[in-house]
Structures are given as C-alpha cells and as structure tokens.
Design a protein around this nucleic acid. Structure first.
Lengths: 212, 212
DNA sequence: CCTTTTACTGACAAGTGTGTCAGCAATTAG
DNA sequence: CTAATTGCTGACACACTTGTCAGTAAAAGG
C-alpha cells in the first residue's frame, strides 16, 4: 500500500442491489417498530445507504411499506398447496409434512414478520388486510379443506364437528408463532416436542373414551 | 329559553372521572394505531377533554401507555383459575366452561386489545412483555397443567404427547382471537360452531383409529 | 354576595421526522 | 485522458407532534 492518500471511496454504486437491500432493511424496521415507529433514518443505516437514497428508489415511506408488504406476502401457501395434490401417503403423513414445513417457515424465514405487521397495522390498512386474506388465508383454507376431504374419502379422518373447521389443523401452529414472536426470549417452546404434541392431539385427541 | 346570552359552560369539572375516561380512550387509540401512531390529540378528543388535560393526569405519552397496559393486564386469568379449583364435574365439562368464558372474553371485553398491543409493541417493551408473561402466561400455564393432571387422575384424559403441552388446550382460541382481530370484517367465524369443533378436536381428535 | 381555590384550556416553543435538491463523486463513453 | 452520465449524499426547509404554562372559568369557602 502506498503512503499517498489512498482513494477511499465514500460509497459504491450498485443500482441493482439497492432495492432488495432496502426492502430487507425496511422489513426488519417495520417488524421491530411498526409503521409509525419506523424511521427512514434507521432503514437507510441498516441498508448501508444515506436516507436520501431511499427516496430515489421509493417515493415515500408509505410506498416503501407497501413494497415491503407486497414482497412479504410470499408464495408460501401456493408452494405447500401444490405439494399436497401429488401426495400419495396417509393423511397423518401428509399433515405431518405440512406442519413440518409450516414450523420450519416460522423458525427460519422472515415470513412470520408479516404476521406481526398485519396484526399491528391491520386497522390502518384495510386494503392490505384484504389482499392478504385473498392471497393467503382463503387459499390456505381451501388447501386445508382438500386435505380433510381427502382424509375422509380415504377413511382416515372422522366426519365430525372438528372437521368442519379445517383451520383447527394449523391453529396450534399460529399459537406457536405468536408465542415465539412475543415471549421467545423468555420461554422457548421446543419445536419438535410441540409438533409431536400438536399432531397427537390433532389425530388422537386428549380424551380416553373409544371411538367407533 | 331567554334571549340573553345563555351561560353555556365550556366544560365541566369532573376530576374523579377523567382518569378512567382518558385510559379508556387511550386504550382504543393505542389499539388502533400502536404506540408511535397514537396521537394524544385524538385521545383527548375521544375522552372529551383538551389535550393539555391529559398531561394533568399523566406525565407524558409514555406514562399514559404504561397505565393503559397495566390496567389492561386484567384479572381474567386469576378469575378462571380460581373457578376451576372448586369444580366437580368431568374434565370435558370443565374445559367447556373454561373455553366458553374464554371465547366470551374475546368477543365482549376490550381485553383482547391487550393482545394486539403486546404483539405490536413487544419488541420495544421487553419489560411489559416480562410482566405480562409473569402475570398471565405463566399463571395460565399452571392452571392448564392442573386441569390436565386432574383429568388424568380421574381417568378422563390420556397421558400422552399431547398432554405434555397444555397450551394446546387453548391454542385454537388464540387463533380465533387473532382471526377475528385481523380478518373479522372480511370473514366472520361463528363462535358456537367453532367452539364445538374446538372441543371435539380436543377430546376426540380427527382420526378414526380406535384408542385403548 | 365576594374571595379563594383549582380543573381545565388555548396558545406557544422546542424537538423530531419526512421529503427535496443542488452538487459531488463514481462510472461510462468517446 | 477528458467529457458526459448518473448513483448517491449532505444540508436545507417544512410539517407535525409533544409537552409547557400563563390565564380562564367553574366550583368551593366564607
């Protein structure tokens, strides 16, 4: 290295990468502080750019939020819905596979961040709620209904009050997600044993009395 | 009415009622907009006072939030925990009673508002999360464990993987709460049928195979 | 009545947060 | 190497939000 003043570049020009980096940083910020509490200042810092740069790629804070939400909707439901149509094993195996993916999603990706954002910002963003409902909830509901119907056809699932509400299949997983999100630092629920218990309850219940 | 200028009081002095009215208004505001999005302006309007009056009763926005949260913690868990110790019927009846109260609480009181606030503000308020965990979650967990243990003793509940995670008893209720909170305007889940399904799944499972 | 007390308000001040813009520096073109 | 282009930044300006305070009007006291 020469001793003449090195040319230390103040920044690098990476037009292509900025949007994705900014969106990632913004997701984290919105997740941690909510919309109103999120500061473009911090988002920029996280993304390694100046605050002004944000406004080169997104019109304003609101547009940035919309972009974040749009991206965070993800394709998770579609993916697992597709994988079920070709499945040939038992219902319990199918559900186990579904839930394993679901819990994995909760633990790893930032997909669950969307859940907090939805819950927190829902009242101020009815349109966002509508889109999420159409893209995720409704599709998920249909997928679950198919799994139940398939199970009944195969004689593996009881036609009963419980099976009229297919959401019950994944309800405990949402509990797990919320618990981890809010109390994760204080009390860790172990995934494996929780998943095992979840499946056990789902298929066998907790009661002792016999069924036909 | 005389035509001389009536003495229209600009306001009434009701020192005793102000705090509770302000707290109620603030709960609604924080619930709808989150901490950062909540405006003392709107809280005052809701409570029917001027903004300055808020600061006569609470030091600042943060203190107001703390007071709201403290009040919203409620005594719900303690109440139902107490009522279970004297219960003499079957486990299914006990759980049904518990869940009926729980769903009722979700539907009527603003107790569920605390849930959104917790989820939204949790990351910025670890101390609040700690308190809630100690006051509600831990106590609830203990109460549920007792119910399960009692059921096993009475030979009404299977000792199994499912019963090692007593949270599963109420997990579907949290799903219901979140669903109602976020998507309530778009798709109403009927309580009665949901509760019936919840109980059915809990005690009988959805599977067909017999148990000993 | 009039005086004293005090619950309450409107106007003000300081701080914070958002968005803009002229100009700089990194790259590209010639 | 020089010129032109453009991704990026720092400084600026405006709007909004929070919190304060002197003063007002309602109740209480004498």
């Amino acid at each position: 290295m020469t001793e003449t003043k090195e040319h230390i570049p103040a920044y690098q020009r990476r037009k292509a990468d900025r949007p994705v980096e900014i969106l990632q940083a913004a997701l984290e910020e919105f997740h941690a502080h909510g919309y109103a509490g999120a500061k473009p200042d911090r988002i920029a810092k996280r993304a390694g750019v100046s605050r002004s740069t944000l406004y080169l790629y997104f019109d304003n804070k609101d547009a940035l939020f919309e972009a974040v939400a749009e991206k965070a909707m993800g394709t998770f439901v579609d993916e697992i819905a597709e994988s079920t149509i070709s499945f040939t094993g038992t219902t319990e195996e199918l559900v186990r596979q579904l839930l394993e993916r679901f819990y994995d999603m909760i633990l790893t990706t930032k997909n669950s961040a969307m859940m907090r954002i939805l819950i927190a910002e829902g009242p101020s963003r009815p349109e966002l709620v509508r889109r999420y409902h159409a893209l995720v909830i409704r599709k998920g509901h249909v997928a679950l209904e198919k799994i139940v119907a398939r199970g009944i056809e195969r004689g593996e699932v009881r036609k009963s009050a419980a099976t009229t509400v297919p959401q019950l299949l994944i309800a405990p997983a949402l509990f797990f997600l919320i618990h981890k999100m809010v109390f994760g630092d204080l009390e860790e629920l172990e995934v494996e044993s929780y998943l095992t218990a979840h499946l056990d309850m789902l298929f066998n219940g907790i009661g002792v009395k016999m069924r036909a």
